[in-house]
Amino acid sequence: MAARDYGQYGGVSSALELVGERWALLIIRDLLVGPRRYGELAGGLARIPSNILAARLKELQAGGVIRRVPHSRVIVYELTPYGRELEPVILALGAWGFKAMGEPREAQIITPDSMTMDLRTAFQPLVAASLPPTAYAARLGTVELFIRVEGSDLDVVRGGGPADLAFAAGADIRRLISGELTPDRAITTGVVQVLGGRNELLDRFATTFHLAA
């Protein structure tokens, strides 16, 4: 039974009955990055009450969106094929929401999964296909991500690695991705700090990851 019944027969109302409850889409967003244990989901969504997380997971399982599976002697949650069909919806919603982000509010943080999905949202595969393969080591607030772009393929994982460009930034990385700041200006104003590699590779990053605000 749906957690919420809108009393309407239609595709949008049916979808909202499945994933429209608070926190549901953020759980799905994080599971698009990869399977997660209950504790990992709770850690990535620090403000979610434990009873709400448990309820959302139960509802999403009942709707066939996620499933519990054994993995290395523990139970993890992962998206079903039906749930993975939500990926373009989540990416489109992220691009739409990017226009309204503004400055971060107090206590808002960047998480590895949220930043991974933001990068996937901003990724321009047609542009990247014409550029040389490039690896980036990004420190974004407290989050460290290793970003590999090869043709139209993007891979983002936690941690570091041998990179063509290593850089650090905070939430203001949004200003580079939106085109509000040029790469040169982002460096001179301190929005982006180049830690290794050539400064001009930040131009390639800004071309590869772009969303108009």
Rank of each mutant, 00 (worst) to 15 (best):
Y6S: 15
Y9G: 08
Y9W: 09
G10Y: 07
G11K: 11
S13M: 12
A15Y: 09
L16N: 03
L18F: 05
W23A: 05
I28F: 11
G34M: 04
G34P: 04
R36N: 15
R36M: 15
R37I: 07
A42F: 13
G43A: 15
G44T: 06
L45Y: 06
L45C: 07
A46H: 07
P49A: 06
S50A: 15
I52K: 15
I52W: 01
L57N: 02
K58F: 10
L60D: 13
Q61V: 14
G63D: 04
V69P: 05
H71A: 04
H71K: 08
H71L: 03
S72F: 09
V74P: 09
T80A: 00
T80D: 02
T80Y: 01
P81S: 10
P81Q: 12
G83Q: 01
R84W: 13
E85T: 05
P88H: 03
P88R: 04
V89Y: 14
L91S: 08
L91Q: 09
L93E: 11
A95C: 12
W96D: 10
G97D: 07
K99C: 03
A100Q: 11
A100S: 11
G102E: 06
I110V: 15
I110G: 01
D118F: 08
A122S: 05
A122P: 03
F123T: 00
F123Q: 01
Q124C: 01
P125M: 00
P125V: 05
P125L: 01
L126N: 13
V127F: 01
A128M: 01
S130E: 12
T134Y: 08
A135H: 12
Y136P: 07
L140M: 10
L140F: 03
G141K: 02
T142W: 03
V143G: 00
E144Q: 06
E144N: 02
F146E: 03
I147P: 00
G151Y: 09
S152C: 14
D153E: 14
L154P: 04
D155R: 14
G161H: 10
A163I: 07
A166H: 01
I173M: 07
S178G: 14
G179H: 01
R185E: 14
A186I: 00
T188E: 14
T189M: 04
Q193A: 13
Q193R: 14
V194F: 04
G196Y: 02
N199V: 11
E200M: 04
L201V: 05
A206H: 08
T207M: 15
A212P: 02
A212Q: 13
A212S: 13
A213W: 00
A213K: 00
